[in-house]
Every structure is written in structure tokens, then in C-alpha cells.
Design a protein around this nucleic acid. Structure first.
Length: 728
DNA sequence: ATCACAATACTTTTT
DNA sequence: GTATTGTGAT
């Protein structure tokens, strides 16, 4: 069979396993996702399963998309030309599949099919509002903790009625949970956890539906199974039915989402719940060199309570791992830019083959600056989330308000953006009035428009009354048009009416960029013109920026260790190997959290195919203040003979050695000669012509300072900037 | 009462 | 470096 040709015996065994519960446990780089996609193709083309009976679940939309592409390619290769068949595999994240199911079955649920999904900013504002109503001071009790407590409860399928409060903290959580849930209901909104919770309840409480879904999806496949939480696991069990073909693939050592409820013990549960499940292990690694695997094993072997794994490869030893201690985070970033520059020049490595990984998004800043300064392109995953930007949230809030005028969170966001003289006091008056008249805030606004002297009008008077009714009138105007206008036309209309461009575009570069973001959102809305506002808003809530990597650009990728899961790169840099960053400070007092930090490092190491660079900084700015940092304890666990560079822990308290460290850095990088000198006329493809002010050979590369003819002064790395010498 | 700007406090990871 | 709060001017 052509489909199975390129697979090894273990992989083939997994792909062709008889239908039934199958648990594939495998290390990184062993072809887990490959096995999953081959299994789908195998079911369709060899077993003859209609593809619409197959459901495959992953954790990001990007992974789902990629899975779809791979399956399509495999079916093409196996000469199975059922184009229709391949497109009907249900592929998606747990959340998107649940969102669809809830939409379909909304009549049975306590919300309408037009429900919206609240992201965490929206959720946070509901928590804040609940705090206010309960007279809880957010300074005394952290909203995030309570929010986290509610989320954890929901992930464990603990609804309000089952929530027992055995201590003070839990009692507060219970009270806020109650208010919060009520607010979601009033707003016809769900949070991420509700999507799972309601889907599980729906299947549990409706025998007919459960059977219907079980018959519809006879074959269920799950990737990254170790990252499922209780709700997701129970959902799977309900979907799977009595004779399940449930094929799950995972690696407990790569479980990195415990903090959002994921429980790798689901792997044990699976074995208990399905005692006849076939267990298949994939041991061979196809990704990394043995050096990298040895380092990865040395790190992960320190974790207690795990099944030891031997990772082996036929790729050979490979190059040693490079360890580098930089002076601070800027130096760290500079080292990376220069190293990548050197690799691309000297070893003809593609910039796109490099990835830089870090523990926290904030660490990307120094990197971005360094890349920008060098004039080198980069791709960044997540970080400043597109849909999290202020201007995007504003526009979406307007759309959401028009979609559902009773959406209070959206209303409060836009009611005074841009400022229209509706301040805190006025809003308070509106909400008070609404509560007294038993109306939603929108209804109160409407009554002010139609009858300014009516019940509401008597409570809200004068300037306040006029400001509110003006806005109410505007809102009604949009609502009247929502049926006839497409989403992008609606955006145009709103933007024009509120003069939004003038509000965000202050003439600065950022202002222009913000307006550009609005236009980008408008372009996205155009694509959804046929599908309607509900679908568009769902897309906006569930498609994260982790999914929007520009594939076309051949440039290094910057991403968090979490976002790196499931990816691979020939060359990987992991930065911030400092105690407090990786492992993160907040994990110090929790052994399980520390184990997870270690797994995170393990995930990072095992992303590398050929070369691994580990970096840390002697001094690091955090929260504005610069502090000295110790090396990460994880570095102690690396096998010394596979490391090149100096072990940072030996120098953490030794100032003299720091200079030696610096010397090592200089000698490790090939000498570069200066090609430029002060006074030279040069031309840059972007910045135009200019005069060289000074030049300096640094880190094996030449850094040139140029004053361009438009008056701008720039520091550029000569090898990257593509400078042309005009005159000597 | 609202707005603009300044001072202040806080910063894990994400569907 | 950013979200929230505080202050003075309008």
C-alpha cells in the first residue's frame, strides 16, 4: 500500500490498527501528527469510511488547517480522487467544534443561536462588574485569581449548584461565579469554558442527541491528547459511545497547559476507561540529532513520576549545543541577530529555518528591536494579538452591539469611545435607571430617544439626557440598517458616523498603523460577507493570532515556548534561561508547576532539528527595573560534554569570568573587516541615500551609522542592510 | 461632570 | 512598556 510505504513498523501498526480505542504514546519528533493524518487517509481510502464520519480534534486552528492539508495531499497521492470526501472530515479545535454544535442545538439551551463568545478581556470586565455589585475590593481580592477559580471549576465541569465553598476564598469565588454566570446569560454570551461545559451537558442530558452524534461521528481522532482537560475528556467519552473508534495521540512529557485545566492524567484515565485499548509506542525520533535528544532526555529525566523514555535517532550526533551568556536582554537579542546573520552568510542557512523561543511574550520586545535595528525581517506569533488591539476591540464591540444591542459589555466599551461626554457618572445613572425600570441599558437608551420626558427621562435629565439619547439615536440608526448592509459596509458606516479615524489616527506612525489595523479587519469582514455577522464574530473570538503566521516570508520566527508546541525548526534559539524566567518565578513554590516549566524547556529543546542555542542574560530588565539574574537550574542538568560555551552557573557570582565570557564571544565569531568608513556616500533600498557617520566592527559584523538625506540617523548591520557604496 | 495628561502599579503561558 | 488611577483644567 502506497500510503504506508514511508512509515516504520510502529507507525504502520498505529495507522492500520483495528477500529477501537487506540492510545498512541510517543516522544517528540516521532511522527505523531503524521500517524494521525495517515490514519484518516487510511480510514477513507482503504477501509472505505465515509469521510463525514470522521472527526479530528486539535488545539489550534492552525494545526487543524495543516492537518486538513496533509490529509488532502495523502488522498491525492493514493490516487483517491474523492475531492468531496476529503473536504468533509470534521476538523477543528475542541472550542470551534463545540461552538458549532451549540449553534446547531441552541433551542435546547439557555441562550439563542446568536450567542457571542467573550474573550478574556470581556470576561474580566464582567468579573469586575460582579465585584462591584458584591462590594468586593479588587485591591484586596485579585480578580484574576477569582476568574481563574471560576474557569478551573468550569473545566472540571463543576457548575454553580455543585460548587462547594469550604473556605473564605471559595465562598467569594462562588458568589462571583453566580453573578458572572448571570451576566453572561443576560448578555447572551458564553466564555471559552462554557463552550465545552454546555456541549458536555447537552450530550449528557439529551439521549437522542448523544446517539445522533455518536452515529454521525464514528471515528474520532485527537492530537495532543495530553493537553485535554476534564471537560474535553468527558466530551470525547460522550461522543465516542459504546463502540468507539477513538484514536488519541499524545506525550505526557509535553503537557504544558495544566494551568488552564489540562490534565495529563487523562492518559491514565483513558487506559482505565478503555481497558482493551491498544497501546502503541513510537520511539524513534525523526527530527533531531542525537546531541539534542540527549540534552532533552537529561532535562526531562529529572521529573518525577514519569515513564522513562529512550529517544533515539538515526540522524547521528550532530553539532554541539551552544550555550551563551549575554550581558543583558539587548545583548542577548544582538547575539541572536548576529548569529542568524552569520549562519545565513557562512553556512547558507535560510533565515526562515531559524526560530527564537521565549517563556513570556514580553521578551520578544528586545528581539524585535534588534531585528528592526538590523533591518532584518522577522515573523512573530501571538504577542500583540491582532484581535486584542484596542482599535480592533472597539470596532468589534460596535459590531457586537449591533448584533445584540443588549450586550452590556460591548455597550459600555463603545458608549464613550470616541468621547461623547458620557462619563462615569452618566453611565452609572444609566445603569441605575435601567435597573430601577427593569430594563436593559439598551432599552433604557431607546426609551430616552422615543420619550425623553418619560420614566427614564425623569431620572436622567439635562445634558446627560441629551448625550445619551443622541447616542441611542445613532445606535438605532445602525440597527435599522444591519439587515441591508454587508459587514464591511456596516463597518464603513459606523466609522464614518463616529469619525473613528480621526479619533485613533493622531498623525503619528502608530496612529496610522492603528487605522491600518481597522482596514485589515474590514478586509477580513469582507471575506465573511456571505456568512453573516454571527459567524464573523465567532471567527474573531476563536481564531487566535497563534494561527496567523505569515507562511510566505522567509524570516526567523519569534514565538513563545507554548506556541512552539507541534512545530519544528532546523535552528532553535531558546532565550531567557534565567532563574525566574525559565522556570518562571510564579512556579517556584509549586512542585507540579516546576515540573511543567521543565516540560516547557523540554518542548523547546525538542523543536530543534540540527542546532540548538541556549541563551541567558546576566542582567535583565523586568517591569522597568534592571536586576541581576542567576542561571536557570535547568542548565545544570544538561550533559556537559555536549555543550559548547561556558556553563553560566559557574560564573553567576564571578565577575572576572564575565570578561572571559565576552572574549569567548568575540573569538567564536569570524573576524569581519570594515568595508565602510566615515564620509562615504551610500544608498539603502528603503531609506534612500545618505552619508556614513561612523562604523564599528562588532560581534563579527560591521555596524554602520548613517545619516540619511532626509535627516534620519540609523544604525545598520552592514551584511544585512544591503547597502550600496556610491562614492569613496 | 468630563477630558487630557501625569503618576502609579503591574507584567506567564492561551482556546 | 501598558493598563489603571489621580489630578487639574475646562
Amino acid at each position: 500500500m502506497k500510503l504506508l510505504e514511508k512509515l516504520n513498523a510502529q507507525q504502520r501498526q498505529a495507522v492500520t490498527a483495528d477500529p477501537g480505542p487506540v492510545l498512541v504514546l510517543a516522544g517528540p519528533g516521532s511522527g505523531k501528527t503524521r500517524v494521525l493524518t495517515h490514519r484518516i487517509a487510511y480510514l477513507v481510502s482503504h477501509v472505505g469510511v465515509p469521510s463525514n464520519q470522521i472527526m479530528a480534534v486539535t488545539f489550534t486552528n492552525k494545526a487543524a488547517r495543516e492537518m486538513g492539508n496533509r490529509v488532502a495531499r495523502l488522498l491525492d497521492e493514493t490516487a483517491d480522487k474523492q475531492t468531496a470526501a476529503r473536504s468533509s472530515v470534521s476538523l477543528g479545535t475542541f472550542h470551534s467544534l463545540c461552538a458549532r454544535m451549540l449553534r446547531r442545538e441552541a433551542e435546547r439551551l439557555p441562550f439563542t443561536r446568536e450567542y457571542v463568545i467573550y474573550d478574556d478581556t470581556d470576561q474580566e470586565s464582567l468579573i469586575r462588574a460582579s465585584f462591584k455589585e458584591l462590594n468586593i475590593d479588587p485591591k484586596q481580592v485579585s480578580t484574576r485569581k477569582i476568574h481563574g477559580g471560576i474557569s478551573r471549576a468550569k473545566n472540571e465541569l463543576i457548575e454553580l449548584k455543585d460548587f462547594s465553598a469550604e473556605n473564605y476564598n471559595a465562598e467569594i469565588t462562588r458568589r462571583v461565579y453566580e453573578r458572572y454566570q448571570e451576566k453572561l446569560r443576560i448578555n447572551n454570551a458564553l466564555d471559552f469554558d462554557d463552550l465545552l461545559l454546555f456541549a458536555v451537558r447537552l450530550l449528557q442530558e439529551n439521549d437522542d442527541l448523544r446517539l445522533q452524534y455518536q452515529q454521525r461521528y464514528r471515528h474520532i481522532l485527537v492530537d495532543e491528547f495530553q493537553d485535554t482537560n476534564t471537560a474535553q475528556y468527558v466530551l470525547l467519552r460522550n461522543l465516542a459511545g459504546l463502540q468507539p473508534d477513538l484514536f488519541v495521540v499524545g506525550d505526557p512529557d509535553q503537557s504544558i497547559y495544566r494551568w488552564r485545566g489540562a490534565d495529563y492524567r487523562n492518559v491514565h484515565r483513558f487506559r482505565q476507561d478503555y481497558p482493551d485499548a491498544q497501546l502503541i509506542l513510537l520511539e524513534q525520533n525523526y527530527r533531531s540529532t542525537q546531541t539534542i535528544l540527549d540534552a532533552a532526555m537529561a532535562v526531562i529525566d529529572r521529573n518525577p513520576n514519569r515513564q522513562p523514555k529512550r529517544l533515539f535517532t538515526e540522524r547521528g550526533e550532530g553539532v554541539k549545543i551552544t550555550l551563551h551568556e549575554a550581558y543583558d536582554e539587548n545583548d542577548e537579542a544582538g547575539y541572536i541577530v548576529n548569529t542568524i546573520a552569520n549562519l545565513t552568510l557562512m553556512e547558507k542557512i535560510d533565515p526562515g529555518d531559524c526560530a527564537v523561543m521565549y517563556r513570556t511574550n514580553a521578551q520578544s520586545r528586545a528581539l524585535e528591536e534588534a531585528f528592526l535595528k538590523a533591518g532584518l525581517a522577522y515573523r512573530i506569533v501571538g504577542a500583540q494579538r491582532f484581535y486584542g488591539r484596542r482599535e480592533i476591540k472597539d470596532v468589534i464591540a460596535y459590531l457586537r452591539l449591533i448584533h445584540n444591542p443588549h450586550d452590556q459589555v460591548a455597550l459600555l466599551r463603545v458608549i464613550n469611545t470616541p468621547p461623547r461626554s458620557i462619563g462615569a457618572k452618566t453611565i452609572e445613572a444609566l445603569l441605575d435607571t435601567a435597573e430601577r425600570l427593569q430594563l436593559t441599558p439598551y432599552e433604557t437608551l431607546s426609551s430616552l430617544v422615543t420619550n425623553p420626558d418619560g420614566d427614564a427621562g425623569s431620572l436622567i435629565t439635562g445634558r446627560t439626557n441629551r448625550a445619551l439619547s443622541d447616542f441611542g439615536r445613532q445606535l438605532q440608526g445602525w440597527l435599522a440598517q444591519r439587515e441591508e448592509l454587508s459587514i464591511d459596509a456596516l463597518i464603513d458606516r459606523i466609522m464614518q458616523d463616529i469619525d473613528y479615524r480621526n479619533y485613533i489616527d493622531d498623525g503619528t506612525e502608530e496612529g496610522l498603523e492603528r487605522w491600518g489595523n481597522v482596514l485589515e479587519l474590514r478586509a477580513a469582514a469582507q471575506e465573511f460577507a456571505q456568512m453573516g455577522l454571527t459567524t464573523f464574530l465567532e471567527h474573531v473570538a476563536l481564531v487566535s493570532d497563534q494561527d496567523t503566521l505569515t507562511e510566505s516570508l522567509n524570516a526567523p520566527t519569534l514565538l513563545t515556548l507554548h506556541a512552539a508546541k507541534g512545530l519544528e525548526f532546523p535552528i532553535v534559539f531558546i532565550i531567557g534561561l534565567d532563574n525566574g524566567v525559565l522556570p518562571h518565578q510564579r512556579s517556584f513554590n509549586d512542585a507540579e508547576a516546576m515540573a511543567e516549566e521543565r516540560r516547557l524547556f523540554y518542548v523547546g529543546i525538542t523543536r530543534a532539528q540540527d542546532r540548538l542555542f541556549l541563551l541567558r542574560a546576566f542582567r535583565r530588565r523586568q517591569a522597568g527595573v534592571s536586576t541581576l539574574s542567576d542561571a536557570s537550574p535547568f542548565l545544570d542538568d544538561l550533559p556537559p560534554d555536549q555543550i559548547e560555551g561556558i556553563h553560566p552557573n559557574r560564573y553567576a557570582w564571578d565577575q572576572v569570568s564575565f570578561q572571559r565570557q565576552t572574549r569567548w564571544r568575540e573569538s567564536a565569531v569570524p573576524e569581519t573587516q570594515a568595508h565602510f568608513q566615515a564620509g562615504m556616500r551610500v544608498a539603502h533600498p528603503q531609506f534612500g541615500e545618505g552619508t556614513v557617520l561612523s562604523t564599528q566592527v562588532e560581534f563579527g559584523d560591521e555596524e554602520v551609522t548613517i545619516i540619511f538625506d532626509d535627516g534620519e540617523t540609523k544604525h545598520l548591520v552592514a551584511s544585512l542592510a544591503n547597502l550600496e557604496i556610491l562614492t569613496e
